[in-house]
Design a binder for these strands. Structure first.
Length: 580
RNA sequence: GCUCCGGUGGUGUAGUUGGUUAACAUACCCGCCUGUCACGUGGGAGAUCGCGGGUUCAAGUCCCGUCCGGAGCGCCA
């Protein structure tokens, strides 16, 4: 008595067949002398009917939602007036001959049946959902999300295999490397007092595979970073990691956008037109105030630095940058104040404003606006102008945050998938705290060779061969061409304040590898959880991870992290220090 | 570490300027019902309103603290 097919796959063509179904009771309708059971498995639900004269009627009377049952019965077409058009199995039903209870079930803590009959699931507090993740995972939404994730990964394997990529696994127990994110440490039993670190990414391993001549590598790799969590970030996450030899930045970008188009075609049936826009870092920062702009709406920032320069409005006259956002609405005072709070949280000194009413600026800083503004920037009746003045980076980023918020509030965001590449990132940025230059991407990123002469004297101007892959305002990938010459890598380490001794100690194996004849190479890593979340239309990556961590980094199903026995600690030579 | 938001039967919500039996839906249990498909219908059980303290004649409601959860800042090469 093995299952003959999935409940959700029954169709009119099966009418007259005897079938064996196994699954969960999604819902039971007891009409007194007649009982209907919606039986569910991963493919969907089908209506099972138990007649009062059937031997299985007593069992059917006993079952409850979420019980696991095996039904043997005959498929029958429903009369036209009894077809349920909402179900893909709605043209048939199964007349039960026998019904065997395989497992009884407690009443679930929250409803899970609605999604399976094509309705909206009731929203349930996430804390309750995560505590009962097994029940939660039964819901249609998570079934759909995890199957979408699988389709994406299967498409990645097909595409990259066809492109000649070789999948290679790299170690999870590896060595701690300085900077970047905080490492997760794993104590060594064989060498007490020494630690492995879980990899933040397979970066160095894949570079060494390139030196070893594998030419095209990829891996769906788990990565670990011990930092605080967000809706789109958790400590163990999945990357699609790849690396290619003898390539340029353009080769990697072109390949990856073809991959993205293939995935969307395979997983969602969505057609994308290539190539995706390529914008420089300077351009996206100036136009959108973000290095991961959401291109699903316009509302671009504009520049008014020159208009105010040397003018009577002191606050703007000497500002490095004055950015302007023209909002197609007359914003009320209260809303502007909320937006100002947002701008300030991103480092703006304030958010100046004025409205254009009856052909004149009114309110806010209206009387300080020079006539030149309207010559430079188109502003129409009934619009609001918002300004941020200050250092360039703070000005654009804070007004960029306002842009994003207004996009949401004014419902300007169009549906769809807006991919783009951000290129020409600066190689280095100034670290105020450490009072020195630090890398923007990672220390193995190649400078743009045209800018090499600037490296020591004007490091801030040096562009990197680094690129980010952005989808709907979210960074879903990033990569770079790597340094493949030992001398240049050592020069970078020096610039970053990593002395020869430290470089040798921490990255000796890399420098050694580079001295054995390394090919020019580069690659990229995608944040797979984020990418899938976007495709699934979810705001949180927890919706596309089977067993996610909560905001506090806890895995609520097993209760990790948890204390361990004294003997386990002793085995690795550790003792817990009292909380100071 | 910080800011903001939330916590009311199993679940999802309501609860007015503080006012006495904490409401509704659904789920659950029992009864009736042969064509339902969120079946219908009658009945029942189920909440010391996250926890502690304070103000008050009176606190789900106001105040303070605390715990838990979420969004964000810092952090995340």
């Amino acid at each position: 008595m093995r299952r003959t097919l999935y409940c959700g796959n029954l169709r009119e063509q099966h009418a007259g067949e005897k079938v064996v179904l196994e699954g969960w009771v999604n819902r039971r309708r007891d009409l007194g002398g007649l009982i209907f059971i919606d039986l569910r498995d991963r493919e969907g639900i089908v209506q099972v009917i138990a007649n009062p004269d059937s031997t299985c009627f007593t069992e059917a009377d006993r079952v409850r939602p979420e019980w696991v049952v095996r039904v043997v019965g005959v498929v029958r077409s429903r009369p036209a007036d009894q077809v349920n058009p909402k179900l893909s199995t709605g043209a048939v039903e199964v007349v039960a001959e026998s019904l065997e209870v395989l497992a009884e079930a407690k009443t679930p803590p929250f409803p899970i049946d609605a999604g399976w009959r094509g309705e909206q699931d009731q929203s349930v507090n996430e804390e309750v959902r995560l505590k009962n993740r097994v029940v939660d995972l039964r819901r249609k939404r998570l079934h759909d999300n995890l199957r979408l994730r699988h389709k994406v990964i299967a498409a990645i394997y097909r595409f990259l295999d066809a492109e000649g990529f070789i999948g290679v696994e790299t170690p999870y127990l590896t060595r701690s490397t300085p900077e970047g994110a905080r490492d997760f440490l794993v104590p060594s039993r064989l060498e007490p007092g020494h630690f492995y670190a879980l990899p933040q990414s397979p970066q160095l391993f894949k570079q060494m595979l390139m030196v070893a001549g594998y030419d095209r590598y990829f891996q769906i790799a788990r990565c670990f970073r011990d930092e605080d969590l967000r809706a789109d970030r958790q400590p163990d996450f999945t990357q699609l990691d790849m690396e290619l030899s003898f390539v340029t930045q353009e080769d990697i970008i072109a390949l990856n956008e073809r991959l993205a188009a293939y995935i969307l075609q395979e997983a969602l049936g969505v057609e994308l037109s290539l190539p995706f826009p390529r914008l420089t870092y300077a351009e996206v920062m100036n136009r959108y105030g973000s290095d991961k702009p959401d291109l699903r709406f316009g509302l671009e920032l504009q520049d008014a630095t020159e208009v105010f320069k040397g003018g009577e409005f002191r606050a703007f006259a000497s500002a490095e940058t004055v950015k302007v956002l023209v909002v197609p609405a007359l914003l009320p005072r209260k809303e502007i104040e909320e937006l100002e709070a947002l701008a300030k949280s991103k480092g703006a000194a304030g958010l100046a404003w004025a409205r254009l009413e009856n052909s004149a600026f009114t309110g806010g800083i209206a009387r300080f606006i020079p006539p030149g503004l309207r010559e430079k920037i188109a502003i129409s009746e009934g619009q609001t102008v918002l300004f941020v003045a200050g250092p360039w980076r703070k000005a654009v980023e804070s007004l960029g945050a306002v842009r994003l918020e207004l996009g949401k509030r004014l419902k300007l965001i169009e549906p769809g998938y807006k991919f783009l590449w951000v290129v020409d990132f600066p190689l280095l940025e100034w670290d105020e705290e450490a009072n020195r230059w630090t890398y923007m991407h990672h220390p193995f990123t190649s400078p743009n060779l045209e800018d090499l002469p600037l490296l020591e004297n004007n490091p801030g101007q040096v562009r990197a061969y680094a690129y980010d892959f952005v989808l709907n305002g979210s960074e879903i990938g990033g990569g770079s061409i790597r340094i493949h010459r030992r001398d240049l890598q050592e020069r970078m380490f020096t610039l970053l304040g990593i002395g020869p001794q430290e470089a040798q100690e921490k990255f000796g194996f890399l420098l050694e590898a580079l001295s054995y004849g390394a090919p020019p190479h580069g690659g990229i890593a995608w944040g797979l959880d984020r990418f899938v979340a976007h495709l699934a239309g979810e705001d949180s990556i927890r919706e596309v991870i089977a067993f996610p961590k909560n905001k506090e980094g806890k895995e609520t199903l097993t209760g990790a992290p948890a204390p361990v026995d004294e003997t386990q600690l002793a085995a690795v030579g550790l003792a817990i220090r009292g909380n100071a």
